[in-house]
Design a protein around this nucleic acid. Structure first.
Lengths: 349, 349
DNA sequence: TTGAAAGCGCTAACAT
DNA sequence: ATGTTAGCGCTTTCAA
């Protein structure tokens, strides 16, 4: 434990060269005579010497470290996206430092400070404050203090800050779902789950309303205003409540339900089955994210896919381009794709 | 972007004091006259100055950074444990650096090197090589090169290395399940899922066999040797296969199934229902880990809980104690608890 | 209570 | 091709 770390000086001394020469073979920044080079490399092997990234980044200015603030990696959506970022970063020679905020604003600020102290080269902000329909001013102020020196990339939006947005095209995500459902003869379509103050959710809602006329949808608050959360329990509750309201108003059950994500869809499916309806024959169910549960639930769920690998890659590339001072769009969109599965694979008359 | 970072010198100059004094108020390591102190603190506020953890740890030797190598955070088990570690570390003033190995040995070595370069104060190894019933010698050698200077903590085992083990008491975990099942009149008990070369799985298997006589269990390979993986698909396949084999041998279906984890149990449940049996009336199902899916699947699954918060805390405390050179047990056990739910809440005659 | 100065491990500019 | 030197931003003796 108390063993002193080997340094470049130790190697230099034993090899009978200067520290600079050792540094040169380490970085490959300049030519070194073959015999010296071999000698040095042997010593490096012998002591299993790894140059300190800490000392290195003191001069380098570039730390090769990207910070990520995520709401909670225990949520598959963030886990998938985080891993995609980690892999993309690794391939470009960067390391990623993950910090969770658990949806707590104070925590987000604290984690941001931690990243600044670590002198990360860029900050990636997933969820949390970036999800707010109206950005928290206090957080924006806090962010603006660092945004001058470190580029910030987010998948949501942070109004009043100078950040880069790489986001799912939520409008398109709603469109492909509607096209699919309408093409299958569904016109009484319900929305389930999600919070009204989350920007990606709101965009989808607004788009649904925008398209309702064109597609001749049977729009009523009983079908569309079923807010909730993003998990399986909430999904089930939300759907139970919808059934209750519909019965009260003597309205027919929907022909299709668009759940805000796959977990919610799983809950919705449970509720529908508990109420004695078949999926997709009586009611079709579709949702967003295409995470594992969509492939696992019975029936398998039709879901909108974002290609996380690609998503993460774009995020990391944007971060690196931004720190390199390259000109890049402040706003980029991820194209969603529809994966059709049994839960909606049914044509209604 | 190109904005130069504020340093302790800038603050010192503007405050009309020496850098050392600024450092003193930053660390609180020595008294500073109140008026100077206030002046400095104001400046720190004004520039939103955060001392560089990089420069700091160049002198400090202590980086306040703990590295974690996990198999894959997209797996809830690791996500839960990772988050518990992150929280525990944060409370003790440490930051955690997560790297995934995706079960690839080469990747594990590479990630370990990355952590060494980052000069983490300790390494926590979750899964991967630490899960092997017989430790990979190559990896052990690689690890031994660092283990002299950095303490390594694992939840599995790494034979031939000088690491600390904080592990779930797998023997006890099997015992409480057996006690519960036998008390409910189950004697024809099957095992489902898991790989034979994973140490925690093997320990459970061995313990089951050890206890079989005492509990008068109906032991046959058709019931006990149903190896598989750790996910829902594998769970379903494994159970399907078991049914097939039992029918072939004209053996009765089991009264209870112990699945290797909750995901596997979810698959097992699906298979059982597909075969027309009721849970728990015809067959009880129990499993390990007590992650979300156990509370969500219908019927809810009886599962062995490890209290991840506590588990993570012990891991982090062990890491810190080890780097402080304190004497701690090389092997510590996490006590499992049984959470009884509907999937096994049935007394058989 | 405070400042000057050295040092942490590395890289890079400048000489040679 | 290689060594010397300065410097990165901080902490920590050592003096005063």
């Amino acid at each position: 434990m108390a063993v002193k770390n080997v340094t470049i000086y130790d190697i230099a001394e034993e090899a009978g060269v200067s520290p600079a020469t050792v540094s040169r073979v380490l970085t490959g920044s300049a030519n070194v005579r073959q015999d010296k080079k071999s000698r040095i490399e042997e010593l490096i092997q012998k002591y299993n010497f790894k140059p300190s990234a800490v000392a290195r980044s003191l001069t380098d200015t570039r730390r090769k470290l990207i910070g990520i603030i995520a709401t909670d990696v225990r949520n598959v959506f963030y886990a998938d996206l985080y891993v995609a970022c980690e892999i993309a970063a690794d391939q470009l020679g960067y390391t990623v430092l993950l910090l969770n905020s658990f949806g707590i604003r104070e925590m987000e600020k604290k984690q941001l400070d931690k990243l600044v102290e670590q002198r990360v080269d860029a900050v990636i902000h997933l969820g949390g404050a970036a999800d707010d329909v109206v950005t928290n001013q206090d957080y924006a102020d806090h962010l603006n203090k660092v945004t001058g020196s470190i580029p910030v990339i987010t998948t949501g939006k942070l109004d009043g800050t100078d950040c880069y947005r790489v986001q799912i095209d939520a409008v398109r995500a709603m469109d492909i779902l509607l096209e699919h459902l309408v093409a299958n003869g569904n016109h009484r379509i319900a929305l389930a789950g999600g919070r009204y103050d989350v920007v990606s959710t709101r965009v989808k809602y607004d788009r649904f309303m925008e398209k309702a006329g064109e597609y001749r949808l049977d729009v009523r608050p009983e079908y569309t205003d079923n807010w909730g959360s993003y998990n399986i329990f909430a999904g089930q509750q939300t759907m139970d409540r919808m059934f209750e309201n519909l019965q009260k108003e003597k309205l027919p059950v929907p022909e299709a339900v668009i759940a805000i994500n796959d977990q919610t869809a799983a809950g919705v499916i449970r509720s529908i089955e508990n109420h004695g309806y078949r999926i997709p024959e009586d009611i079709s169910v579709v949702s967003y994210d295409n995470v594992d549960i969509a492939k696992v639930i019975e029936p398998n769920i039709t879901s909108v896919d974002y290609d996380f690998d690609h998503f993460g890659k774009i995020i990391i590339e944007t971060a690196i381009a931004a720190m390199d001072g390259k000109k890049i769009d402040r706003q980029q969109y991820i194209e969603p794709t529809l994966i059709i599965r049994r839960s909606s694979d049914y044509h209604r008359e």
